[in-house]
């Protein structure tokens, strides 16, 4: 078996395991939803065990898949959209694992594993491309620094985005708990209250923002070496700037009383811009980052 085959095989295995984790996690959350809040801490369903185990094994498979891809390519596997997707989803699950080390994250598990299933599945089915050599423009230690931090911050922002969406739902439910009593709303009720979610989201976005700042700065340093200017309003640079500004607005809104209400929506706009930067900008706009696509 070649490294390429091993990589694809383990990544598909990870996708499947995440899908199982998502379903089992959702079953566990719906079980929690039927229990009084103070008893939830002691509920141990079989689904919970399955979700935790499959997420962990999925993450290990995922890691093996990434390493094998790196061996196949002969370089750190971060040079095109496929590699970006498989690494970014890995980071998202890893952030979830770190998040749940100190607190119960049953409510977050199905969302993160669901996102990882979709991202990995799309990556393997749509974006997959055989590894080719690195172009001269990418042969730089900045590939490791700039792109790895970009991927990590994308993974962190992704988890932050999920929490922000949940926060909005939770807020709506809290405003009128009598009205929102359906099964899904009861599952939403399992998550912490709106204020706690908001605080989690803020801290994740703060980490993501610092990493993104570093991504933009290291990109400028690399551009200075590779393209002879540190900033040239290339489409990728424009969108990185737009993302940075939107998340800066989120942090300001979050820190200012009276503007708090707008904050989650700004965070959502930031994540939309992040996805735009990764998809539309790669495929549609002409720019110097064209190798990010799968041409």
């Amino acid at each position: 078996m070649t490294a390429a085959e091993l990589s694809v095989m383990t990544l598909w295995a990870a996708t499947t395991l995440y899908a199982i984790a998502m379903i089992a996690g959702a079953i566990h959350v719906s079980a929690l939803a039927e229990v009084a809040p103070e008893e939830r801490g002691s509920v141990r369903t079989r689904a919970r065990g399955i979700a935790r185990a499959t997420t962990l094994v999925g993450l290990v498979m995922h890691a093996v898949g990434l390493v094998a891809r790196g061996i196949e390519a002969g370089h750190t596997p971060w040079s095109n959209m496929y590699e970006y997707t498989i690494t970014g989803s890995f980071v998202a699950v890893l952030v979830y694992m770190i998040f749940t080390r100190k607190r119960d994250g049953s409510w977050l598990g199905p969302l993160v594993t669901g996102l990882a299933t979709i991202a990995l599945g799309l990556g393997l089915a749509v974006l997959y491309g055989q590894s080719t050599g690195l172009r001269p423009a990418l042969q730089s230690y900045w590939l490791v620094i700039h792109v790895s931090i970009a991927i990590i911050s994308t993974g962190v922002f992704a988890v932050g985005f999920l929490i922000v969406v949940l926060q909005l739902l939770q807020k709506r439910r809290e405003l009128d708990p009598e009205r929102y009593t359906g099964r899904v709303w009861r599952m939403v009720a399992v998550a912490p209250d709106q204020k706690t979610l908001s605080s989690y989201a803020y801290r994740l976005h703060a980490v993501g923002f610092v990493l993104w700042t570093f991504t933009v700065m290291s990109g400028a340093l690399w551009a200075e070496d590779a393209w002879g200017r540190f900033w040239g309003w290339d489409p990728k640079e424009v969108w990185s700037f737009v993302i940075w500004v939107i998340y800066a607005a989120y942090l300001h809104a979050r820190a200012t009383t009276g503007l708090n209400k707008a904050a989650p929506w700004i965070a959502i706009a930031g994540f939309v811009a992040l996805i735009m930067n990764f998809t539309v900008v790669n495929y549609v706009f002409q720019g110097l980052h064209t190798y990010a696509g799968n041409s």
Partner: peptide
């Protein structure tokens, strides 16, 4: 004001 700063950022 922070409100205007926020609008300007967006």
């Amino acid at each position: 004001s922070m409100r205007v700063a926020l609008v300007l950022l967006l």
